[in-house]
């Protein structure tokens, strides 16, 4: 069975051949090979590639902000306030004479920070709650899912507002509030995935070998949930960005001197009529980045989770 396959597949040698072999020598090689084939599928989707480029661009801009930004994002030149776009200031300046392009470039850092922080706090919480509930079942399941439902029954933004009100405005608290309100869907998802594998033979085999509950959950159940969770988190990132920007706009997220995009829109509001660019340009940045995450998420879903109705 090996012969005819290798005849066509191993034509290119080297790294590509190593990735495409159907007789992997190690677990690592098999995993890399699977990733490679996933990438090949992903690459065919042009919109998803566009999304990926936008997200990569965001990361690059955030990383190299000090090198890319032509001006100081926090200190402006008051003589140059509220200027329209020109060769010196591509997107014009705001009411403090700060270059809007530079502020956008630095703002990418805050956007990325919010997204990453929420993702690495909310997703593990949801994963843990969901897998534990699904694995043990019974009253543990009932209790945990009840708590999840309560959080789910809440309007997200209002709950985040209430949290921020109690904790005080600021970027860190906004992140915390968003994370506290966005884990329940992940818990639901992880529980559903757990229920499908809970009765599988490999779980029973691992248990017979004497694996503890904790190791079983972490080592054998959680990996089964990750791909659908990654898709869901990516699709949610646009929503997280919009919520964070909304909190910033209401004055409850990042505080004024920081060049956070939502706060920039809020600051530019009063100059909307005559200096429209101050408020509208940051909104375009938010839109482009959210669109990037949405496109990327759609593409990832088609690759990792084809069951979930790929054409949506």
């Amino acid at each position: 069975m090996n012969k005819p396959m290798t005849g066509t597949a191993t034509a290119p040698q080297g790294l590509r051949g190593w990735l495409r072999t159907d007789t992997p020598q190690s677990r690592f090689q098999a995993r890399m090979g699977r990733l490679w084939f996933g990438w090949l599928t992903f690459r065919r989707n042009r919109l998803a590639m566009l999304g990926l480029s936008i997200v990569l661009l965001l990361c690059a801009v955030a990383l190299f902000a000090p090198l890319l930004a032509p001006y100081n994002p926090v200190q402006g030149v008051l003589n140059d306030r509220l200027q329209a776009g020109s060769a010196a200031h591509w997107f014009g300046t705001d009411n403090m004479g700060r270059d809007i392009l530079s502020r956008l470039i630095y703002g990418a850092r805050y956007t990325l920070m919010v997204v990453v922080l929420v993702a690495i706090t909310a997703a593990p919480i949801g994963l843990l709650v969901g897998t534990v509930a699904g694995y043990f079942g019974g009253w543990v399941d009932t209790a945990l899912m009840r708590v999840t439902d309560i959080f789910l029954a809440f309007p997200k933004l209002i709950l985040a507002l209430a949290f921020v009100a109690a904790l005080g405005p600021g970027l860190e608290n906004a992140v915390l509030a968003i994370a506290l309100t966005s884990w329940p869907p992940y818990a639901r998802l992880a529980r559903a995935e757990t229920l499908t594998v809970r009765k599988a033979d490999y779980i029973a085999a691992a248990r017979l070998q004497g694996l503890s509950h904790a190791r079983l959950i972490v080592g054998h159940i959680m990996p089964m949930c990750t791909s659908s969770l990654i898709v869901r988190v990516t699709l949610d990132m646009a929503g997280i960005i919009l919520t964070a920007a909304g909190l910033g706009f209401l004055g409850l997220g990042a505080q004024p001197p920081l060049p956070e995009w939502g706060a920039m829109i809020s600051e530019g509001r009063q100059f909307l009529l005559n200096q429209w660019w101050v408020a509208t340009v940051p909104g375009l940045a938010i839109f482009v980045v959210s669109l990037g995450f949405n496109l990327l998420g759609d593409g990832l879903r088609d690759v990792l989770d084809p069951r979930a109705g790929g054409n949506g």
């Binding site: 829109i265 509001r269 909307l272 959210s290």
Partner: peptide, 18 residues
């Protein structure tokens, strides 16, 4: 749908007002 999931509602409102 894609635009609906990606546009900040407050920004769209401001642009609409403008």
């Amino acid at each position: 749908g894609l635009f609906g999931y990606s546009l900040p509602v407050f920004w769209l409102g401001l642009v609409g007002l403008l």
